[in-house]
Structure formats: C-alpha cells, structure tokens
Design a protein around this nucleic acid. Structure first.
Lengths: 223, 223
DNA sequence: GATGATAGTGAACGCCCCGATCAGAAATTG
DNA sequence: CAATTTCTGATCGGGGCGTTCACTATCATC
C-alpha cells in the first residue's frame, strides 16, 4: 500500500463530498512518468510533477507520501494486465513466452527505465521496496512457479529443482541487463535463456544420472 | 575515472606542495560507507560525510565531483582484490567457487548495501553507471568467460552456449536477490545455481541429442 | 435549495542540502 | 627562504522538500 487514499488505483469511492478528480490523478501519473524518462528520478521532483500536470503540489501530497510512491503507482498503472498466461503450450514454450514478454516490456515501453528508477528509490525507501516485491515481483514469480510445477507434473521438468532458484535463473538476467546495461535486451535473449536453462551448460555425457537417483539424493519438495 | 585527482586510489604523487592527506582520504571513504550502510545513499550527504570524517566539505569536492563518486570509490576500495581464481578445479567447481564468493561478499560485508546504493545512484548518473560496468562488472565477467572457455576446451561445457547469457544465468540471480530481497542470499544458493545451470531443468529424456547435433544446429561461436 | 463533507488551488513558510567560492593556515620541496 | 599545493572554516544563493493556510469547487444528503 503506497497511496494514502483508500481506492487502490482508479476506484472511485462514492462518499459524501467532492469526488476525486480522475483527470488530476492521471495527469500526475503521466507527468511523473514522462519526467522520469527524461532525466531519471531526480528530474521528477514533486514541484516539477505538479507544474507539468497542471496541479497543485498539495494535491499530490494529499494522495502520495513521497515521490517514490508516485513513481511506483505510475509504473504499476503502466504495466497493469501485463501478465499473460497462454494456454496449450508445453513448459519450455510457456517459459519462453514469459521471458520474451518481460524483455519486450522493458525494451519497448517506458517501464524499463521506470523499473530502474524505482529500484534505485527502493534503496532508501523500504516502503517502495516492499510494494515492488508484493505488487510486481511476487505475482510474476507465482506464475512462473505454477508453470514449473505443471512441468514437473507433466514430466517436462526435473522434480528435484529449487523453483525459486530456477525462476531467478530465467528472469534475473533480464533485470541484470536492464540495471547494468552491459549487454543488450534483444530478441534472441529469451531463446538463449530458456534453452540453456532447460538443457544445461554441460554436455550430455557429463550430466548426472536419471531423475530417480536425483530425487532420492535431494528429497526436496517444491515449495 | 571518477575521482578528479590523477592518482587512482592510494597513489601519492610526489609533487611540490603539501601532499594529499591519506588520513583524510580514508576517513572520507569510511564515513561515506558507514553513512550509506546506516541510511542509504541519501543519508550520506556531502555535509554529513564531511562532518563524520572530520574534514572540510571543500576537501571532498576537490577530489570527488559528486556523492556517487565518493560512494563508488569507497565501494571499489572495499572490494579490491576480491577476485580470486583458484587453480586445479574442474569447471563446475570453479563456477561454484566464484558464485559462492560473490554471495559471501554481498552477504557478509558492507558491499551488498553499497552495491544497491550505487546502482540506485547510477540511475541518474551515467558516469557512475559506466564506472560500475568498467571497474566492477567487466573484470568479473571476464573471469567467468575464461572459466567457461576453458570448460569448453576441456569438453566440460557445451560449445554452442552463449557465454554472456550463461554468465548472467549464474550471477544475475545473486544481484536480483540483493536488489529485491525476495529470497535470502544463503549458502545453498551457490550449489543450486551452478547445479541447475550445468544440469538443466529438463529431465534427461527430454533433452536434445548429443552435442554434435546441437553444434550443427546453432553454428554459433562463443564471442 | 441549504448543509456538510471532501477535493483541489495557490501561495507561503522554514529547513536542509547542494555546489561554489574565498582567504588564510598548514605542509612539503627546492 | 620562496614556491607550491592542500586543507580549513566560513559564507553565499539556489532549490527541492514537507507542511500549512484560507479559499474555492463539487458532490451527497437532508
């Protein structure tokens, strides 16, 4: 929970007094996003946002406690409904779809720079950090975990893997390249990540034995 | 290059005038680190650093152009000589060693929070971003690439992998957990990451054929 | 239509940190 | 000694922050 008001994002409480201006809300989120894209989170000062949105500064402080909170809501509004789970794919294809979708989201929309700005802000604002975890990361990891569990049930994934670590191996490289910029977020990355994660880096003759042995070795249950 | 002065970190130029105070330099870096650990990068204001270090603010500005630059030099001084390449290990063991070393560095020293603060600062300071890439990330990726290339020559790594993507799959999860804090950086993570990356998530019977086929399919050369 | 509740406005406030600058004292070399 | 460079302590204007104020606007209810 970051916004101060009760309605989470767009809801309009039918209260007694003057209703909240939807125009102002959207203008603030848009202004914050545009300013952050142009010059990082420092460019999106509360005063700059207010001026660009044509809104009083007091109005922003009424609904958001900090600039990071405005950025977070702008980001979440932008990426809403960006979780898509297609049906009828095998495990590798489903993972490839999710990985490619995240790459495309970060590369082709403003959410990439916004995510960078947010994580930077989260460093000094634990409320932002918590909101990113709960409202962005956790839902996505749940989808991936479900794909992996289904894959295990189908026999397409080894049952002895750690699902959390596997999720991170698939998706963390995307964030890594977004944050550090050492290599591009291009289209073939999705294929590389999924193929290499599924197949492994070692040649076949070096791999451990059949999965029955691996299960008896670990006895770990996917959480 | 971030520090303004010529000597990169500790060198003392034998010029004419009063020599630079080593005590002041170390006190500044230490103060910056301590303040950032306590309250994030925003707590380490130039004035706070100057006061804690017992040093004039003008002295800091003389040698570092921004607070991010001070943070960067403090971080690099702290993690100097943290790249260790042990000899006589097979590929999996060498990778496991490097992964475990990074986890331990982030978990057991102050460099973890410092790295978070730096990446946050890099969001609005491209000079910091470049310095992190060149003086932190690139040397480490070079070591990993060398391990993987040696592994290919030894037949312990498939020759058709993308080395950059493989490096990210091994190490990006560590940064990911450091930045988001969604799962702990514990000791077994190193084993999980290397084992799963080497062996693959798919069971043996689902994997593609022997490596000769894979090579002819991709024809990609490790860069 | 009057009343009351809630929102948005525009302006102002003190606070703190920033980046920059200055004169002067300190330390070292030649 | 003089020359050179560093460190100091103080100061300055600027700007964003977070907050508050009185005022106006818009709605539901009586």
């Amino acid at each position: 929970m970051v916004a101060t008001g009760r309605p989470m994002l767009g809801e309009t409480t039918r209260g007694r007094g003057r209703p909240r201006s939807e125009r102002a809300r959207l203008a603030i989120l848009a202004a914050a996003g545009e300013l952050m894209l142009a010059g990082g989170i420092n460019a999106a000062s509360m005063e700059a946002i207010a001026e660009r949105a044509g809104v009083s500064k007091a109005t922003i402080y009424k609904w958001w406690p900090s600039r990071g909170a405005v950025a977070l809501d702008g980001f979440l509004a932008m990426v809403r409904d960006s979780i898509i789970v297609p049906e009828g794919l095998d495990t590798a294809a489903a993972l490839r779809f999710q990985v490619a979708a995240l790459i495309a989201l970060f590369r082709d929309t403003a959410s990439g720079p916004l995510m960078r700005a947010l994580v930077g802000q989260a460093e000094s604002d634990s409320e932002i950090a918590r909101a990113i975890r709960e409202r962005w990361l956790t839902p996505r990891r749940a989808v991936t975990a479900e794909i992996l569990r289904t894959g295990i049930a189908r026999g397409e994934i080894r049952p002895d893997i750690d699902i959390g670590a596997a999720s991170d191996q698939l998706f963390a490289p995307i964030y890594h390249r977004l944050f550090f910029g050492h290599e591009p977020l291009d289209g073939q990355l999705a294929d590389q990540l999924v193929t290499q994660a599924m197949t492994g880096l070692a040649p076949t003759r070096y791999r451990s034995g059949p999965e029955e042995i691996a299960i008896s070795q670990h006895l770990r249950q996917p959480q």
